[in-house]
């Protein structure tokens, strides 16, 4: 027990020593625009990021202490739920939508497939409370953490206060999520003029710019807005997307335009995960569009791509894979925190 405490204190000291400014901890990639997140209200520090990382991986956030954020957002699949069209949460209950991939969140204004969440800080409240995800509430989460050995100390190290509040819990989770930046794909290297595309990738890039980039806008590969991309309504779900939030008929069947970064690893695709392969997605855009009143203008005239062009476009999409993100040890399960303490 004594050894444990000693290890923990050494660790805390280590974290404090490396506490540094927001600018150091959050570097805007040279080819990226200014982030939307207001860091002045939640400036990044190493202890807060580490606390957020612990919270992200800790099932204490769920009612039965078995489901963590990472349960449905695993790093190797760009923080989505690989192989699951709809995610399963607590007691294997099945959710309503496909878990979105998490990256470059500092550049997003609204969250969830329908934009129901208006700020990154309050996003975590939704899965924590959802009866088929974690089925817990933030009051209980704070109270459970207050009674652990490790969390009062981690909160003290991060916020100078061992009393655990909802505000600090949520801000810490945001801090970790803000650090999930993916900007090191081959595409980024090409943009930074460090490497060149192959002829095939380059042709794919031209096709992308012609057919896809107005919604999947570079360099984030999303325009951060809500569009109807011509999917038929799945009558087992009857999901009308953003309409559910705004009750405005103009928003019917609109869903958030997802980023295409790391698309190679973030399958299955679409808000309900109905498409398993990238080829299914391209075929949808060339021959599967369902017309409806709110269909995106960009899709009203069909996209035409030959089989060879689809291959080239796929080669380009694969250049959006960022292995330094998918395997960045800073985002790993924080075993150094969890293995040195128990919930006594």
């Amino acid at each position: 027990m004594k050894l444990r405490i000693l290890i923990l204190y050494v660790l805390l000291l280590f974290m404090l020593a490396f506490q540094s400014s927001n600018d150091y901890l959050f570097q805007v990639p040279s080819n990226f625009p200014k982030p939307s997140y207001d860091f002045s209200k939640n400036a990044l520090t190493s202890p807060k990021i580490q606390l957020g990382r612990a919270l992200f991986y800790d099932p204490i956030l769920s009612r039965n202490n078995m489901i963590s954020c990472a349960s449905c957002h695993s790093q190797f699949s760009a923080f989505t739920h690989i192989d699951h069209a709809l995610s399963h949460g607590i007691e294997d209950k099945i959710g309503f939508r496909n878990a979105p991939a998490l990256m470059n969140l500092a550049w997003q204004k609204l969250f969830m497939r329908d934009g129901a969440v208006n700020h990154l800080d309050v996003q975590a409240l939704a899965p924590i409370s959802n009866p088929v995800e974690m089925d817990e509430n933030i009051v209980q989460v704070a109270s459970k953490m207050q009674h652990t050995f490790i969390y009062p100390q981690l909160f003290y190290a991060a916020f100078g206060d061992s009393n655990i509040t909802g505000e600090n819990t949520l801000k810490a989770i945001s801090q970790f999520m803000l650090t999930l930046i993916s900007a090191n794909s081959k595409y980024d290297s090409v943009m930074r003029k460090e490497v060149l595309y192959t002829a095939q990738e380059n042709n794919g890039y031209l096709l992308f710019k012609k057919n896809c980039s107005s919604c999947h806008k570079e360099p984030l590969f999303t325009n951060d807005s809500f569009m109807n991309n011509g999917l038929s309504v799945d009558t087992t779900l009857n999901d009308y997307g953003r309409y559910r939030v705004t009750n405005n008929a103009k928003d019917s069947l609109k869903f958030k335009v997802p980023t295409l970064r790391n698309i190679e690893f973030s399958y299955p695709y679409m808000h309900d995960g109905r498409m398993k392969r990238m080829a299914d997605v391209l075929n949808h855009y060339t021959s599967g569009i369902q017309k409806s009143k709110t269909l995106a203008d960009e899709l009203k005239t069909p996209i035409v791509l030959s089989p060879n062009e689809k291959v080239d476009l796929t080669a380009f999409l694969l250049s959006l894979t960022d292995k330094t993100f998918l395997f960045n040890s800073k985002f790993f399960y924080p075993k150094e925190l969890f293995l040195n303490s128990s919930k006594d």
């Binding site: 207001d38 209200k41 939640n42 700020h119 990154l120 800080d121 309050v122 409240l125 933030i138 509040t165 909802g166 505000e167 600090n168 949520l170 801000k171 945001s174």
Partner: peptide, 9 residues
Amino acid sequence: GALGGALDP
């Protein structure tokens, strides 16, 4: 975003 005091979730 996340606020404290009377506004804490």
